[in-house]
């Protein structure tokens, strides 16, 4: 199978690899996929106010899955949570020229962004409750 130049570029030089402190209240973590399916993505975001100031990922998966999650971290950085929620898997497919068999990789990346945002929102709400209590 031939890979697009952009997939190869992200695979060879993945952006924002690493981990953020998941215990921090401003960090949201999304882990999606399952090892037996051959894909697990962990995407983390750090927010200041409503804006994503940092993003990190680690992915177990094929080159397209690695590229999709690497691209996702690039795209969410600097966006507000609402803006990041608007990222669609089809945009990832288009940007990376993913073939049909690899569309699930982009779906997983979109899911990972959503899961990370949901996590940080939940943390924020429980903090607010603690403060008001």
């Amino acid at each position: 199978m031939a890979y697009s130049d952009k997939v190869l570029d992200h695979y060879n030089k993945p952006r924002n690899v690493g981990s953020l402190d998941k215990a921090k209240s401003t960090v949201g973590t999304g882990v999606v996929g399952a090892p037996e399916c051959g894909d697990v993505m962990k995407l983390q975001i750090e927010i200041e106010g409503d804006r994503i100031v940092d993003a990190k990922f680690k992915t177990f998966g094929c080159g397209s899955a690695i590229a999709s999650s690497s691209l996702a971290t690039e795209w969410v950085k600097g966006k507000t949570l609402d803006e990041a929620l608007e990222i669609r898997n089809t945009q990832i497919v288009q940007e990376l020229s993913l073939p049909p068999v690899k569309i699930h990789c982009s779906v997983l990346a979109e899911d990972a962004i959503k899961a990370a945002i949901a996590d940080v929102k939940t943390k924020r709400e429980s903090d607010l409750k603690k403060e008001s209590a």
Binding site: V31, V32, A34, C37
Partner: peptide, 19 residues
């Protein structure tokens, strides 16, 4: 690999589900 190094048994993780 990160989880394994942290001492997590992967078989006990409740995976959100893959595709």
């Amino acid at each position: 690999y990160e989880m394994v190094l942290e001492g997590i048994d992967l078989s006990t993780v409740n995976w959100a589900g893959g595709h």
